[in-house]
Design a protein around this nucleic acid. Structure first.
Lengths: 190, 190
DNA sequence: GCAATCATTTGATATAAGTCACAAAATCAT
DNA sequence: ATGATTTTGTGACTTATATCAAATGATTGC
């Protein structure tokens, strides 16, 4: 197993612009590596959660309950961030995030990092792009979900996010596309 | 007609935390008040646009073309910001934004403001919440669009965004909810 | 004020997708 | 390995929504 500190150093090493040693020391107390197993839940619907997670290894799904049934809203894989800005603003999450595989994550305690952003331009400049990326990712999600027919959503996601079909069960994908399992099965049969 | 400078002063006056005089002087060259008429387009699909707009007075719709037909994606009113983070990242907009009423807007030239963010913590702290709000707004949009039946989307939007039904034509609303005008008419008749 | 356009409603029919029921295949736990 | 559980596929039938057509109501420009 790779040492936690090496994973964190790697992560900072790939940040642009580079953070000074002093700033990483400020951030360190609010960062930790976790290795949750498959099926573990890292964010719960209707609960506030102060963490954002960067996926070093693994896969996750987001879903919420609608009349008692789970509706999948997105899947995330390596080098993506999961978390909700609602949490960052002290609002409860709309979604539950569950891991689909044994994973390695970096957990950022945003409650601890938020005051550092206001105090240090460098931290602010580090977190901003993450929020920007998150918004871009939401725009992507919106684009996909706004496609009319199940067939359109199926082919678009199939062509633009093929990794989803490689790593996620069809049951989860059906719920995500917004069709019944049976309909997805029939779309695939075409 | 209210003087431009008074509108801008008002806007800054309501910002939290307050900006220093020095910083507002830095921002001023990148801000202007515009008064576009109904039907005017302020952001075009597939074009990069360096501006974000704050609506002082008026209403706007976002839409994109899908097989030649306009699909409405959102409506915005007073005290809301329209713009795309894709523009901010030099990517072309996915949507066209058209005004539904004669409007008064503050236009922020984000290309000019971006370097100020990196140089001044105060500017960074001023723009960050806007990006956060934008992400929260995207999360809202996602929540609505992910509802399964047209009837669910109709009643949810009806109860949570009633102002849309007061100010936007049913034709636009139908396209937004993702149903034909005829179906929306029948949903309303219930 | 009147014609012309645009928005909304209503009816008849067609079609995509849902639901229920069950079989087959794959995966998991002991 | 073997049985148990989960996942995927297929058929019959139902339902929601789209589409086409046409009438009524509301706005807009001249």
């Amino acid at each position: 197993m790779v040492d936690d500190q090496i994973l964190i150093d790697n992560f900072f090493g790939r940040c642009e612009p580079k953070l000074t040693e002093q700033i990483t020391q400020h951030l360190m107390p609010h960062i930790k590596v976790i290795r949750p197993a498959k099926k573990q839940i890292i964010i719960r619907e209707n609960q506030t959660n102060s963490f954002a997670y960067f996926i070093i290894q693994g896969a996750a799904r987001s879903y919420y309950l609608q009349n008692g049934v789970e509706v999948n809203t997105w899947f995330a894989f390596e080098n993506e961030v999961v978390g909700s800005l609602r949490n960052y603003n002290d609002l409860p999450s709309r979604e539950t995030v569950e891991l689909l595989e044994d994973s390695v994550l970096i957990a950022f305690n945003m409650v601890g990092i938020k005051p550092l952003m206001l105090a240090h331009l460098e931290v602010s400049s580090f977190v901003n792009p993450v929020i920007g990326d998150y918004a871009a990712y939401l725009e992507d999600r919106l684009y996909y979900t706004h496609l009319r027919s199940a067939h359109d959503r199926f082919t678009t996601i199939m062509s633009q996010r093929p990794e989803i079909f490689n790593r996620v069960s069809l049951t989860h994908i059906a719920s995500f596309i917004g069709v019944s399992r049976e309909t997805l099965s029939r779309l695939r049969a075409r």
